[in-house]
Computed example of a mutant assay.
Amino acid sequence: MTVHHPQTPQFFLTSPSPCPYLPGRAERKVFTHLLGERAPGLLDLLSQGGFRRSQNIAYRPACERCRACVSVRILVDEFSPGKSMKRVLSKNRDLVGRMSSPSPSSEQYSLFRRYIDHRHASGGMAEMSVLDYAMMVEDSQVDTRLIEYRRRGPDSSFSAASDGDLVAVALSDVMADGMSMVYSFFDPYEDERSLGTYMILDHIERTRKLGLAYLYLGYWVDGSKKMAYKIRFQPQEHLAPNGWELYQG
């Protein structure tokens, strides 16, 4: 008989399902639960091995014949934005980002629905209800923050009450060695702002100010146009069979 120590995580393997990034391929994931006081420490440990968090689940790809998904983290102290990224920062100088505890709102959900319907109408999140969204935001037993990006009002420097419209949202975890961007979305009709790039740049600076070394971006998928943007933020490390290695591409 096998006896499981209550502090030992149990891992499970999903059944094969269509890959959302590479057509014609199937994906499988290995996952475990993040529960109780041990959840933050377990997430720190698992993140070193390429796991990501979704609500109270930590998971990573476990595909039998494919290794296209590669964990990526930015070295924030060595990062310096290039000319195009500086232009993105300049375009968004009229925004203010406020970090708080993860609390969902109807305003966030309206923006989320607009983003999903415009960018990912056929994706796995297309059927998410307002309750599903609330669970995505609130169901965390680690140090999770929610950052709202709004148009800067005339008195935003003094009071959040004067902030303008919500244009982007990021849900992020703070870990022992860095921040991890769990999920983000933005107004799809503000294309000229490059809000996805802007939020990553903002997170790099927030991670640096927290005195942490890395910004975890999840998976770069070789061959997927959806994930190609992650390579732009260098220097960065990729998780290889022998550990984290500096990306030389």
Rank of each mutant, 00 (worst) to 15 (best):
S17E: 15
S17R: 13
P18F: 08
P18V: 09
L22N: 02
R25D: 03
A26M: 14
A26N: 14
K29M: 06
K29I: 07
K29C: 00
K29G: 00
F31K: 03
F31N: 04
T32W: 02
T32N: 01
T32H: 01
H33K: 11
H33W: 13
H33N: 10
L34R: 04
L34M: 00
G36A: 02
G36C: 06
E37D: 13
A39S: 11
A39I: 00
A39F: 03
P40T: 01
G41D: 13
G41C: 01
L43T: 07
L43H: 11
D44Q: 05
L45T: 14
L46G: 05
S47E: 12
S47W: 03
S47N: 15
Q48I: 09
Q48P: 02
G49F: 13
G50S: 05
F51L: 01
R53C: 00
S54H: 01
S54W: 01
Q55S: 13
Q55I: 02
N56V: 10
I57M: 12
Y59V: 10
R60H: 10
P61C: 05
P61H: 06
C63V: 03
C63Y: 01
C63K: 01
E64F: 11
R65N: 15
C69Y: 03
C69S: 15
C69L: 04
V70Y: 10
V70E: 12
S71V: 09
S71Q: 04
S71A: 15
V72P: 06
R73E: 00
R73H: 09
R73M: 05
V76D: 01
E78P: 04
E78C: 10
F79A: 08
P81H: 02
P81E: 09
G82H: 02
K83Q: 15
S84N: 14
L89D: 09
S90C: 09
K91I: 06
R93Y: 04
R93T: 12
L95C: 04
L95P: 03
V96A: 14
G97C: 10
G97D: 03
R98G: 00
M99P: 01
M99K: 14
S100Y: 01
S100H: 05
S101V: 09
S103A: 13
P104F: 10
S105R: 04
S105M: 00
S106L: 12
Q108K: 11
Y109F: 14
Y109Q: 02
S110Q: 11
L111R: 07
L111S: 00
L111T: 02
L111G: 01
L111I: 02
L111W: 08
R113I: 11
R113S: 09
R113Q: 14
R113P: 03
R114K: 15
Y115M: 02
I116C: 05
D117A: 09
R119V: 08
H120N: 05
H120M: 07
A121T: 04
G123V: 04
G123D: 12
G124N: 13
G124V: 09
M125H: 05
E127R: 15
M128L: 13
M128E: 11
S129R: 01
V130R: 14
V130P: 12
L131A: 12
L131M: 12
L131F: 15
D132V: 08
D132L: 04
A134W: 02
M135P: 08
M135Q: 14
M135L: 15
M135T: 11
M136Q: 15
M136Y: 10
E138S: 14
